[in-house]
């Protein structure tokens, strides 16, 4: 269901990004609305992760404009750290902090960046860890946790900043099959709460259930976009059909 009535949360205009000779992003223009759930699909190397990472400037774009929540992040005068506080990110490889307990993982940025007291941060952390279902592991170190549990800690860690946007970069791709469900469940729960979500994934079931809009990318460009229904019933582009045939 398109959400035209909402304000634009992320605006990308004519964005280009090169890795040497390779065009990772090729003239990408895109509006993502407040509260929208956007799923990016495409073959590996199609630029979907690069697109995602350019929204919080983990990748610096070479040309074009990206405006996040009214702030132009391509402007060199923009304090990117301030913008990043509002954008949570979940990585394929979890990237939990191995030298900190689960609680401290979720506390750290709250204390360092948001300047919350330890007590206040811990309360928020416990609430979120409860929500993602690993409250019993608060005092464990990450190496005692399964991949699915680590990823849920990473989600709680990002949520603790109370972000306006959540970016998910193939959050289940590094997980054993039996753990994918527990992470997707958390993401579905989150989607229902109305936060803006941009998800790079190969989980088509998730896209079908959660996405307002699906975007198919190849060779750095947006090939086709539409509702999940449109996508899985009658995609128009040849490349989309080919890709969907391969993974479904």
């Amino acid at each position: 269901m398109p959400t035209d009535n909402n304000s634009v949360m992320v605006e990308m205009r004519e964005v280009y990004k090169y890795f040497g000779q390779l065009k990772a992003l090729d003239n990408v223009s895109l509006d993502i609305h407040d509260g929208e759930k956007l799923v990016l699909i495409g073959p590996s190397g199609s630029g979907k992760s690069t697109l995602l990472r350019s929204i919080n400037q983990l990748e610096q774009i070479d040309h074009g404009r990206i405006v996040v929540d009214g702030i132009d992040i391509s402007d060199p005068d923009t304090d990117i750290n301030k913008v990043r506080e509002e954008i949570g990110m979940v990585f394929q490889s979890f990237n939990v902090f191995p030298h900190k307990t689960v609680l401290d993982n979720v506390n750290l940025a709250q204390i360092v960046v948001r300047k919350r007291s330890k007590k206040e941060a811990s309360e928020i952390s416990r609430e979120l860890l409860n929500k993602v279902g690993i409250i019993e592991k608060v005092d464990e170190y990450p190496d005692k946790l399964s991949g699915g549990q680590q990823q849920r800690v990473a989600i709680a860690r990002a949520l603790a900043m109370k972000p306006k946007i959540m970016l998910f970069d193939e959050p289940t791709s590094a997980l054993d099959p039996e753990m994918i469900g527990e992470v997707l469940d958390v993401m579905i729960k989150l989607a229902k709460e109305g936060i803006t979500m941009i998800v790079v994934t190969h989980e088509m079931g998730f896209a079908r259930e959660v996405a307002d809009r699906v975007i198919f990318m190849d060779y750095g460009a947006i090939i086709e976009e539409g509702t999940p229904e449109h996508f899985f019933k009658n995609p128009t582009q040849e490349r989309t059909k080919l890709f969907l045939n391969q993974i479904l």
Binding site: M89, A109, V112
Partner: peptide, 18 residues
């Protein structure tokens, strides 16, 4: 230390020195 650690920290809004 894997570069993902730095990315995770930066994505949470930490400065590079933090």
């Amino acid at each position: 230390v894997s570069s993902g650690q730095m990315e995770a920290a930066r994505s949470l809004g930490m400065t590079s020195s933090q």
